[in-house]
């Protein structure tokens, strides 16, 4: 038996969970940044737009998460992106 040459692992559960959980964190943090920077828009419409923004980002991340070479890498990259975005949100909100 030869080992498969491919280095790409399927890791269904790990990739799906990374996409679902970290995708939601990314989407919420992204919507938070939108709320912060789109202060020119009236508050009611801004809140609605921020809600609409979540699904495309979340589902986009979830759909793309199977492009990672392994579940561990998906968690690593998406996790790093999430930390970055949440950090950015925290700093703009505090400053």
């Amino acid at each position: 038996m030869t080992k498969p040459i491919s280095s790409i692992r399927r890791d269904w559960v790990a990739k799906t969970l990374a996409g679902l959980l970290l995708g939601l964190v990314l989407a919420l943090a992204g919507s938070g940044l939108f709320v912060h920077f789109a202060s020119g828009i009236g508050s009611s419409v801004r809140v609605q737009l921020a809600m609409w923004l979540v699904m495309p980002v979340w589902l986009g991340v979830l759909g793309g998460s199977y492009f990672f070479h392994s579940g561990a890498r998906a968690w690593l990259w998406l996790g790093a992106a999430a930390i970055l975005l949440v950090g950015a949100l925290a700093s703009v909100r505090l400053l």
């Binding site: 919420l28 809140v47 809600m51 699904m55 589902l59």
Partner: peptide, 27 residues
């Protein structure tokens, strides 16, 4: 997806982004 989950998303964002003032902001 949004029509199904918008209540939940608003509740999450209210908690995380708007300090519980979402009702006021949406008015």
């Amino acid at each position: 997806a949004v029509f199904a989950f918008h209540d939940g998303l608003y509740a999450l964002q209210d908690h995380l982004l708007y300090d519980g003032r979402i009702k006021e902001m949406l008015r």
